[in-house]
């Protein structure tokens, strides 16, 4: 079949489809069936949906936490040298910096 004929066939088939629109018949008592389904459905509890979503989110969160913990552990074990300044001492200095400053200015 030539390409010309194929184009004609395409047009003809489209014309066939246009000339024969589908039926709009509705089965008897269809709306009653839908209404029965609608009224039988439980009302969705928003809090239940939220709790379910939180449960779904818990597993990935734990996985991420474990991943980062492992990574932090591996990184810390690489640097075995003790820090030059004690971390507790640094924190102490930072927190008490304002008190020290006021003491110095008072003298």
């Amino acid at each position: 079949m030539s390409s010309m004929k194929l184009n004609d066939l395409e047009k003809k088939l489209i014309a066939v489809a246009r000339a024969n629109p589908p039926s709009d018949r509705v089965p008897p008592t269809f709306e009653k069936r839908i209404m029965a389904l609608i009224t039988a459905r439980p009302v969705q509890d928003v809090w239940a949906v939220w709790a379910k979503a939180l449960w779904y989110a818990a597993a990935p969160c734990v996985a991420v936490m474990l991943l980062f913990s492992g990574w932090a552990f591996v990184e810390s074990s690489k640097h075995t040298q003790p820090p030059t300044v004690d971390l507790a001492q640094q924190l102490d200095n930072t927190l008490l910096a304002a008190v020290d400053q006021s003491n110095n200015s008072g003298q």
Binding site: P21, P22, S23, D24, R25, V26, F30, E31, I34, M35, I38, T39
Partner: peptide, 17 residues
């Protein structure tokens, strides 16, 4: 919910087609 039924009746033919 019952007020939804007239809408189903009216538009079902179009949705079926």
């Amino acid at each position: 919910a019952a007020s939804f039924e007239p809408l189903i009746e009216k538009y079902s033919p179009r949705v079926f087609a």
